[in-house]
Design a binder for these strands. Structure first.
Length: 863
RNA sequence: GCGCGCUUGGCUCAGCGGUAGAGCACCGCCUUCACACGGCGGGGGUCGGAGGUUCGAAUCCUCCAGCGCGCACCA
């Protein structure tokens, strides 16, 4: 392909991404053995969200690594996934189609929406609206998932277009969706195997619970939020005595759920109370006073009320002190009905307790608190006024109200007993940057319970489990019915366990389905097994697993990364990947994390169009592993400028007929040797995932190459000193450019490909990564030549400055330049004298030894 | 409370034992035959603070401060 007259960056993204697709440039060659494969476990973006500049940032980092590895000779396994499993998609499907999922319904293979049209026409306009405010249509879970897949196809196409435009070197023939059947199959199969190994278990226990979503949540999904509250000082009277015990609590509404008081065993103030009983205010329940080391003498009055359950410490006390349960908070967050006087609810004055408590039934915790405080005031059990404080309260990260602890039946994966093994796995992984490993270990060390994986939602991967119904209609949770692996994926709400018929569903002697779905991390944590074709293609699996790289952001170390390590540990007895590259966040100019909820995101496609994908890639590439990076269009402009420079210098080097020959000139040989050093440095940095450092070095060399080497060799290349000298220059220049294009290709993937195609067949992205030997073979090793490049640059800079001081253009021809330099420099410069003289446009150049300075004699002013 | 990271010119950052660097911004010069989506040059910082190690410290150690983050605690 000839060098264009007016090369331009515009249009490269569309043209080249189409060419890459046509040529299958990034297609995975599954014939390569494991040691020649580089496998990447790409994070699947959430399709119902939108891609923002943070995605562009971190996905570019991965792509740079992928391109480097590919050029180094690795066959890169680089699939892309779409995360459509979770609340955002669930809500979108509901609104868009006007449906509701009802997991009790069986699958309807002939289901059609009343006014079914093609959902791929037009986005964001909820179909439901056009039907007015009609009731949503109830559909089965499998039908709901079908609708989801239908809807997200459109998002996936938009996302894919953006990724192609950005230049991700993904193999687009390998994509997956986290709710689609293959993902369900792997999730369910791995679940069943954990169940068989007794690493998955079910238990009825107090669990963190979101009262709005009405589901259990896991420790990994918690976040602390600073909330206003108040200490209430409340009197408990001593049973059989006249004294009172004052406790402080932020949750007086839980007094009816109180099962004990607790103080530190060494606390002198309460020694005489241990082993005695006290009476709760208002409700008159006798509860013991106990000792436990977790009680903090410094906090409040040093003695705490244990309720079932106010917080996780209550759970610990309840478990360790073997206390009874008096649960009052219901799954919806309101206080449930209690019949005082019944077993477990014995109290001194049943009528009074009932009369008081009935006023609380149906109230939210917050409202109940107001009422209880009122009752305490009336009874005189509240001492003084509540003391306002702010304190951290646990929230579900997507929730709006504080978590409650509700007793319910949940599935768990074992983690607690395996902490040491999981930490050891973490040490088998190379972390980039290395200090991110500390986050992982912090998290694993801080685990305080097994991983709760069931969610009381309907959109997600169902547990492939049924339970027998006994003759009396009760459920036998101890003998779960599971399908053969060959049947997977299944949906127990529709499918029937072996040995049963569909009409036995819900009947005594029949079966019922497990109603829950898996936690989103319980399914996404199997992405390495899913993409590596575990149990579906043993050949691919053997060539890709354990994978090489997991790229992800640091906020999900405790979720996606941790859970993936857990799954691979138990299923494959290995790490899921050997490297974890943790990217930082994009910060807005106020140094805040950019996120959609903060309303400060920038639409990426517009940026890519304005600054060019190469410009944006350049900005992203400057943010090293783990480094939070400011959103900065200035850097994108610089990236674009760099891409322009590549275009222009390439035009100079490649355009026209140039003589080819032996590289003989000192300047050329020295430059190539310097370039050989750069190749080594860049290769080392990139091998170590330090793509930002590599870029800084390559970029610096490149500008020096353009501004000094090319300028100095230009005249000779034009033939001013004969054809052999010209051939030396043009041959060296072409080689250097070829090497520089390859070094820059992982970063400026479009412009490098464009320019490469002017003088090469095939893609630069499949070209071999340059080596020192390629260059030294041409330049030889010659210390003097190498030094001459340095001295020439020094001299050129000094002479340019001298011209500037004389207020003439650098291009101004001058009569004479006298350059004083050190002895060694003067000798070295003699090797490149012709080039230097031509570069400073002097009729005469005199090199002298002495204190470094420059003397210039201008030509007489032209009339 | 424990842990991690950051603190370098106006801005964004690199350097991590050997005389303070880059780009942007700013100022000046230059429309030179690859490039005005350009080129050349210039001013500008005692590298958060205090100690210490060393012939020598932005770079290593200790302590402190500010910012950010993780984990734990949260009666």
């Amino acid at each position: 392909m000839p060098v264009p007259e007016k090369p331009a960056l515009e249009g490269l993204e569309d043209a080249l991404s189409a060419r890459w697709e046509r040529d299958g440039t990034y297609r995975f060659d599954r014939s390569k053995p494991r040691d020649q494969v580089y496998a990447i476990d790409t994070p699947p973006p959430t399709v119902s969200g939108s891609l923002h500049v943070g995605h562009v940032f971190s996905y570019t980092h991965t792509d740079i690594v992928a391109r480097f590895q590919r050029m180094r000779g690795k066959e890169v396994f680089y699939p892309m996934g779409w995360d459509d499993n979770g609340l955002p998609t669930e809500r979108r499907v509901q609104n868009y189609f006007g449906v509701r999922c009802d997991p009790s319904l069986p699958y309807d293979p002939n289901f059609r929406l009343p006014d079914e049209a093609d959902p791929s026409t037009g986005s964001g306009s909820p179909r439901a609206k056009s039907r007015g405010e009609k009731q949503p249509i109830s559909v089965s879970r499998p039908n709901f998932i079908e609708l989801c897949v239908k809807l997200t196809v459109e998002d996936e196409q938009l996302f894919e277009h953006l990724w192609r435009y950005l230049g991700l070197s993904v193999d687009w023939s390998m994509t997956y969706a986290t709710i689609a059947p293959p993902a369900q199959r792997v999730s369910q199969m791995m679940f069943l195997r954990l169940l068989q190994k007794k690493l998955a278990y079910q238990v009825e226990a107090p669990t963190l619970w979101d009262v709005d979503f009405r589901t259990a949540v896991a420790q990994a999904e918690l976040e602390d939020r600073e909330q206003p509250g108040a200490y209430h000082r409340i009197h408990f009277s001593q049973a059989g005595g006249s004294g009172v015990v004052a406790i402080e609590t932020t949750r007086p509404e839980l007094i009816p759920a109180c099962v004990a008081l607790v103080a530190h065993p060494d606390d002198a103030r309460y020694q005489s109370l241990f082993g005695t009983e006290v009476i709760t205010p208002i409700f008159g329940v006798r509860v013991p006073v106990l000792a436990h080391a977790l009680a903090d003498p410094e906090k409040g009055s040093g003695i705490a009320m244990i309720c079932t359950f106010g917080d996780t410490t209550d759970v610990t006390w309840w478990r360790e002190l073997k206390l009874p349960v008096r649960a009052i908070v219901q799954p919806d967050g309101t206080l449930g009905r209690v019949t005082w006087g019944d077993r477990g609810w014995e109290c001194a004055d049943v009528a009074r307790a009932q009369q008081a408590y009935d006023q609380l039934v149906g109230l939210s915790a917050k409202k109940a608190q107001v009422k209880v405080v009122e009752l305490l005031r009336e009874s005189g059990d509240l001492q003084g006024e509540p003391k306002p404080i702010t304190h951290n309260v646990k929230f579900y990260e997507k929730g709006d109200r504080p978590l409650e602890i509700v007793t319910s039946r949940q599935w768990f994966f074992k983690t607690i007993d395996y902490r040491d093994q999981l930490i050891a796995r973490g040490r088998e992984i190379a972390w980039h940057p290395a200090y991110m490993q500390a986050r992982y270990e912090n998290w694993v060390n801080g685990l305080n319970g097994d991983w709760c994986v069931s969610r009381q939602r309907f959109f997600g991967v169902p547990f492939p489990v049924w339970y027998p119904l006994l003759a009396d209609g009760t459920t036998d949770y101890h003998q779960p019915l599971v399908p053969a692996e060959s049947r997977l994926p299944i949906d127990p709400s529709t499918d029937v366990p072996d040995g049963y018929t569909a009409d036995q569903r819900g009947q005594p002697g029949g079966f019922i389905a497990d109603p829950d779905v898996m936690d989103t991390w319980a399914t996404s944590s199997v992405s390495p097994q899913l993409v590596s074709q575990w149990q579906t293609d043993a050949d691919i699996f053997a060539r890709t697993f354990p994978m090489d790289l997991r790229p992800q952001a640091h906020d999900i170390i405790r979720t996606w990364l941790f859970s993936s390590v857990v799954r691979a540990h138990f299923e494959n007895d290995s790490v899921p990947w050997t490297h974890a590259a943790i990217s930082g966040w994009v910060l807005d100019p106020d140094r805040k994390k950019m996120s959609k909820s903060k309303g400060n995101v920038v639409t990426p496609l517009g940026l890519l169009q304005e600054y060019g994908s190469d410009g944006v890639r350049y900005w992203a590439a400057r943010g090293g592993p783990g480094v939070d990076t400011a959103f900065d269009v200035g850097q994108m402009k610089i990236g674009r400028k760099l891409a322009m420079k590549v275009l222009n210098v390439s035009k100079f080097v490649l355009a026209g007929e140039q003589p080819v020959g032996t590289v003989t000139e000192a300047l050329d040989r020295g430059m190539l040797q310097n370039l050989a050093n750069l190749v080594d440095e860049a290769t080392e940095e990139l091998s170590d995932y330090e793509y930002a450092r590599a870029l800084a070095k390559i970029e610096s060399f490149f500008w020096d190459f353009c501004d000094n080497y090319v300028e100095a060799a230009k005249s000779r290349r034009y033939g001013d000193f004969g054809v052999d000298a010209a051939a030396s220059a043009s041959t060296a220049m072409r080689l250097a450019l070829s090497v520089l294009l390859r070094l820059l290709a992982p970063y400026l993937s479009f412009v490098c490909e464009e320019v490469w195609s002017w003088s090469n067949a095939g893609s630069v992205h499949r070209a071999q990564w340059p080596t020192r030997e390629d260059l030294i073979a041409v330049s030889g090793t010659d210390d003097a030549a190498q030094r001459s490049v340095f001295h020439l640059t020094e001299a050129l800079n000094a002479i340019r400055k001298a011209k500037t001081d004389r207020k003439v253009s650098v291009g101004t021809p001058v009569r004479e330049v006298i350059y004083f330099a050190g002895d060694e420099a003067a000798r070295s410069l003699a090797l490149v004298e012709r080039d230097l003289k031509a570069a400073c446009r002097a009729d005469g150049l005199v090199l002298k030894t002495g204190e470094p300075r420059v003397e210039i004699t201008l030509k007489p002013a032209e009339a």
